[in-house]
Amino acid sequence: MDGIHDMGGTQGWGTVELDPDDPVFANDWEGRAFALGAMAGGLSGTNLDAFRHGLERLHPLTYLQDGYYGRWLACAELLLVDSGVLAQGAVDARARRLMGEDVEEPAQPEVNKPEYERGGGGSLRDIDDPPKFEVGDSVRARDVHVGGHTRMPAYIRGRAGTISAIRPAAVLPDATAHFTGEEPQHVYTVSFESTELWGAEAEPTTLNIDLFETYMEKR
């Protein structure tokens, strides 16, 4: 989906501040939000790709204002509500009670976790079909605009590149995030010249990105 998360090449974000002493968690709650986020996939019966898509589905203002682990917390809540592990509004009601407000907590809904076939743990898979592309092939990223989850960022769409490596095949996030199956595919590292991505005036550099086979066509 075209969302706030797809940040590559967007402008107006200001300078990068590097703090070499950045702690792992600046506040205790961030560590707990991280752990709850890491557990949310298992508790909701979803998966890593659904978690990433959950982050993308947050309101753009929530995505930015909540900060990194605030976003994980909101995403954990979203997946748990989607799967009926928690009622809509349950976290809000409990939080308000913790703050001393007299609010009623919503009734527990029926658990409704997604049902789909997994081909094993992790994301990498062995597949029988040979790779469609070879190293050195000229390809073009498809100009597709999907409404759901995808790992092809907008800044690559329609652009011409070259296959530079064949990586292990993996489950297709576009499918697993929506629980329709795994549809494992070959994955390639594809090289794009900066001038192809950002115009003739761009400083000459190279961008390498990992793309799934169906994200591309031969040119």
Partner: peptide
Amino acid sequence: TAIPQKRPPAPIRTEALEALL
């Protein structure tokens, strides 16, 4: 466009989610 409503602060919501689970 709906603007997200003001929610309890993240530390409290974290505590709430942990408590519920």
